[in-house]
Design a protein around this nucleic acid. Structure first.
Lengths: 246, 246
DNA sequence: TGCCACCTTCCATTCAATGGTAGAACGTGT
DNA sequence: ACACGTTCTACCATTGAATGGAAGGTGGCA
């Protein structure tokens, strides 16, 4: 019993505390937090108090802990995706207006698509993508658009480790999906995420022709107007890319 | 020279590193970061490496440091404002459609209004409020709407410490603005933030009639349609409050 | 009232954190 | 091509900040 019996640094612990919140949960009891972070109660208590003093956490009465508003502020002010989102926003609004559909913007994080921005259209179909939410590469058009335009070695590594938990999809099938998407310049998935929706996405390239994001829409399965959607998305994607290059 | 010559804990330092990024800046050199955080270079280097390993920071080649995408993800997934924003979004979209103007949502943080969500209207007037941006209470309609509905003692404390850096506004003037806003049930400021825009905001109350947010619009100064705007905003604010109470 | 679950505080022990120093890797101007 | 300044990375002896068990509160519920 001394400086960390478990052999982890203070930084490790701070990270574990922040990571302890399950997706969508904003508030946790101290005991549960300690539990989830794998910390002794008294250590968790001390850490939470320290972080709260700085506003990274917000500990209310009775030991309830939330992420601090100050942390939210700092992260969103200096977000690594700030430039991307600012460049994309006007074009996403255009798409939303012109095509009258849900629009979303994703980046590749690990082997998943991480959605960084979304404009949803009231009355349109459900859009499963939440901002700051993730979707596996092989079951999201955004994921496929992103992966299909990654360098050869990245794709190889991805396919190498690929494994579908449900066992329905094989690496071979995904390879084909990626090949199609690469060849066509866009990715589409009909009825996969939701049985009555259709997702389509195109890559967004920066000045150096590196694919940095995917721009996509989710439309009702009935309205398959590829001819109208793809050119609009590609035009917008190019516009975003140009802004990023500036 | 030992465990912290400067007498601050590891947590203090982690916070200082995250806070070191100036508003809107997403990337910093290691040396500059160390400087801003007030840390010895070698300490900053070690901390950055540790935080990067966990994805809270993202250190690119050549010592450039950014906030990590993982941190952005965690904070936005479990954001303390998540419930508020989810409740407010549909109503904000309605306002945007019906009134055809910029809409924003703010909470009180310290003695400032912190904007947590915004829908901007292309072609409409400039909207100074950035998401995760701040405005002093006395020069934003959202700030006034929030403060004017705080408990008496909070308002007293605010007015007590009030001081306008430019010296143009006195505490007395602000007291009057707050009184007006409280009496009318909405706050307005014409040509203060921008000479040709007009801001108006109403309080959003939760189930316990505590004012938790302000809902506002920014419109061209020419279009002073109070009769149309205020009821629409108040209706939306009530709708948001009802959702929050659920 | 007594019980239980959870929060908060205390403090002796000890190892993780510290930061000066040295040198490697750039970049830049001559 | 060379020397110089700047910035990044690595090392390691020193030591006080971090640790966590135990004891004491607090509140809710039966």
């Amino acid at each position: 019993m001394a400086n960390s019996a478990s052999g982890d640094s203070v930084v490790d612990r701070v990270v574990r505390v922040i990571e302890a919140f399950p997706e969508g949960v904003t508030s946790l009891q101290l005991t549960e937090l300690a539990d989830r972070a794998g910390l002794p109660l008294s250590s968790a208590h001390r850490l939470v108090r320290q972080l709260s003093e700085h506003g990274l956490l917000d500990s209310g009465a009775g030991g309830t802990v939330r992420l601090g508003l100050r942390l939210w502020e700092l992260v969103n002010r200096n977000s690594p995706t700030l430039a991307l989102r600012q460049a994309a926003m006007p074009f996403m609004e255009d798409i939303q207006q012109v095509l009258n559909q849900n629009v979303n913007l994703a980046v590749l994080e690990g082997w998943e698509a991480l959605f960084v921005e979304r404009l949803s259209r009231r009355g349109s179909v459900a859009n499963r993508a939440r901002v700051a939410g993730r979707m596996p590469v092989h079951i999201s058009s955004a994921g496929l658009a992103l992966m299909s335009h990654q360098p050869r070695e990245v794709q190889a590594e991805y396919l190498e480790q690929f494994q579908d938990p449900s066992g329905k999809v094989t690496a071979g099938v995904v390879r084909q999906l990626l090949a199609d998407a690469a060849q066509q310049g866009y990715a589409q998935l009909a009825g996969v995420v939701d049985s009555d929706t259709w997702g389509i996405a195109v890559p967004v390239m920066n000045g150096k022709r590196r694919t940095v994001a995917a721009l996509g829409v989710v439309v009702p399965l009935a309205e398959m107007r590829l001819q109208a959607l793809v050119p609009a998305l590609q035009t917008a994607a190019r516009g975003i890319g140009r802004r990023l290059a500036e």
